[in-house]
Write a protein that binds this DNA or RNA. Structure first.
Length: 284
DNA sequence: CTATGGCCCTGGTTGC
DNA sequence: TGCAACCAGGGCCATA
């Protein structure tokens, strides 16, 4: 599923094709993709605007729009599970999964989404959305000290906490599992019981894994995520735990386990990531 | 503050 | 072989 590295890759690869382009026509074939707005209103807001920049915040691809010199708000695209942004390729046959199509003064930007969970919305001002998100894991605000304090001042299991976009923005199921493995921390470990040294390891693990995944243009292990160029990423070859349950740990050899945490498949090594002592444990 | 569970969706997998 | 049931999962919302 697209997480920070996949979204970053998407933004980088479409940027040169759409920056500076003007939106001339808009086709919407699945209205709910617009997140509650009508196609007519969506069209009214963005037709005639120019795409001034393409960036990323958390798992959003962010298009800044201008009408002439005047700020015209932003388009926010969230890929969720199966969304893809694709720039025009002459060979690209019309996809049955196209939900929104922006026809530009040169080229076409398509939003494809098999499962229809993705969103492509226009906001006059994204500040309320962005302000509700935690810091960027690759940004300056995300320091080891910040994470140590963040863990200490909350009492949640590590995995759901790291998945919480209001705590830290951009991680998803895959990279959380990989980061916890690298840091040697069990996904159910309570955040306020993580020793400072381990929190520091987790901070490094998160940044290293995300940076490495961006270098490889993300992960593609099923038929869903592809770069806008149609190519798969390659970080899946470096997975240590995600999807490897039943196979041996690459570090210690023990068979990797899969459990469900917060309704999500969770992969870890019982030796490298020792279980926390549950409070309810009858004896200890 | 934290946890749980339903909901949205559809293609692929599983079970009989 | 055929078909129905089941599953995955990010974010959001209601409930406890």
């Amino acid at each position: 599923m697209p997480e920070l590295p996949e979204v970053e890759t998407t933004a980088r690869l479409i940027r040169p094709h759409v920056t500076g382009r003007t939106i001339e026509r808009v086709h919407v074939s699945w209205t709910r993709t617009l997140g509650g707005q009508s196609a007519a209103e969506f069209r009214r807001r963005i037709v005639g605007t120019r795409i001034a920049s393409v960036g990323r915040r958390a798992k959003f691809v962010v298009f800044e729009l201008r009408r002439g010199r005047v700020d015209a708000g932003v388009l926010l695209c969230h890929l969720r599970m199966t969304g893809r942004l694709v720039v025009d390729r002459p060979t690209l046959e019309p996809s049955p999964w196209e939900r929104v199509r922006l026809e530009l003064d040169r080229g076409v930007l398509r939003f494809l989404d098999v499962r229809k969970f993705g969103r492509f919305t226009h906001l006059h001002d994204p500040a309320p959305v962005f302000d509700a998100l935690g810091p960027e894991p690759l940004g300056e605000q995300f320091t080891a000290a910040w994470l140590r304090r963040g863990l200490r001042t909350r009492r949640r299991a590590l995995k759901p906490l790291l998945l919480d976009q209001t705590f830290l923005a951009g991680l998803g199921n895959i990279y959380v599992d990989e980061a916890l493995f690298r840091a040697g921390l069990h996904p159910l470990r309570r955040s306020d019981r993580v020793p400072p040294a381990a929190a520091t390891r987790l901070h490094a693990a998160i940044r290293e894994i995300l940076a490495a995944a961006i270098e490889r243009e993300g992960s593609s292990f099923d038929s869903f995520y592809r770069t806008p160029e149609g190519q798969p990423g390659s970080y899946q070859h470096l997975f240590q735990v995600y999807g490897r349950d039943g196979q041996p740990c690459r570090v210690c050899g023990r068979t990797l386990k899969r459990i469900v945490v917060s309704q999500r498949g969770t992969h870890f090594c019982t030796r490298c990531q020792p279980a926390p002592r549950p409070l309810s444990s009858p004896r200890s």
